[in-house]
């Protein structure tokens, strides 16, 4: 059965989530382009530093969320950071799902030893909390954007791999797959055309939900100084940048968290709504990732 599609079939929270994510993505692309001041440049520090939200500076420039210790506009920087944070989150989650799909399809299709090895590997990585894996990897390799994306993929593929594996293993014995084999369709083409389209739904849900946790994990690593490195702004390292000002100018640290929370909530709502349509089960494991 094909799920219904279209805007009107979405419930109100899902519509809000789509609008919020769209607005954030548009803001991340457009705001830094349209901003009058360079979000990385440091201007008249003394006059502009640590202005509170809704303040105007001496030149009349309006600062929606105030300014940081160098007088840079927090709203513009937050949107610029959104480019990196959203890109890393989406990329990390999509790569993880792609990897999981390949591993799961191999395991489910071939069965036997390959299956057992792949699932033992998945169980092994699942047994280590994702944050611990991320921290260990960040400790061992040079921190940076590429490392974060690779590590997010390497620690996020297991759920999708398991789902795809069971779907593929079930589809493998279906008559239409057998028919394809009998007609001489190459294995890869059978997998791609006939097996995966039936197995991909839950994997897409996991990817959507994964964007939220990837964005969250990236922010955590960056907050600890092990993720995106300044001066490139990400939501996590912006929060870290305002950390020592928390008792005197709390908006510097707290403002970038708002877009982060909106992103994670929106990704969760969309993933949940989508899952409800496919009627899967709730991912309890997300709870364990919050050390």
């Amino acid at each position: 059965m094909k799920p219904r599609s279209g805007w009107s079939t979405l419930d109100r929270p899902s519509q809000l989530a789509v609008v919020a994510l769209g607005a954030l993505a548009a803001g991340a692309v457009l705001v830094p382009l349209l901003a009058t001041a360079d979000p990385l440049a440091i201007g008249d520090v003394v006059a502009r530093k640590l202005l509170p939200p809704f303040a105007r500076d001496e030149a009349g420039g309006f600062h929606l969320l105030g300014t940081d210790r160098f007088g840079r506009d927090l709203f513009v920087r937050m949107m610029l950071a959104g480019r990196i944070s959203l890109a890393v989150g989406v990329l990390g989650s999509v790569l993880a799902a792609a990897m999981g799909t390949v591993v799961g399809a191999l395991a489910g299709w071939n069965g036997g030893a390959i299956d057992r090895i792949a699932m033992a590997a998945a169980d092994t990585v699942l047994a280590v909390p994702r944050l611990v894996l991320l921290l260990v990897c960040a400790a061992l390799w040079q921190p940076g954007t590429t490392t974060v994306v690779i590590v997010l993929a390497a620690t996020g593929w297991m759920g999708v791999a398991r789902m795809i594996r069971s779907e593929v293993a079930a589809a493998r014995v279906r008559p239409y797959v057998e028919a394809a084999g009998a007609l001489g369709v190459p294995t890869l083409r059978t997998l791609w055309r006939h097996v995966l389209p039936n197995a991909i739904g839950p994997a897409l849900v996991a990817t959507t939900l994964g964007v939220g946790s990837a964005v969250m994990l990236e922010s955590g690593l960056s907050f600890l100084g092990l993720g995106i490195q300044p001066p490139a702004p990400s939501w996590g390292n912006m929060i870290a940048g305002g950390r020592d000002l928390i008792v005197s100018a709390p908006w510097v640290a707290l403002a970038p968290g708002l877009t982060l929370i909106i992103t994670v909530v929106a990704a969760t709502i969309l993933g949940d709504a989508w899952r409800d349509r496919l009627s899967g089960e709730a991912p309890v494991r997300a709870l364990a990732d919050r050390a």
């Binding site: 955590g220 929060i239 968290g257 929370i261």
Partner: peptide, 19 residues
């Protein structure tokens, strides 16, 4: 639940000091 733990921590600190 969508807020990072460190953000919740900082928000509480901000409230009980600055706030």
């Amino acid at each position: 639940f969508a807020a990072p733990t460190f953000w919740v921590a900082l928000a509480l600190v901000a409230f009980f000091t600055y706030g």
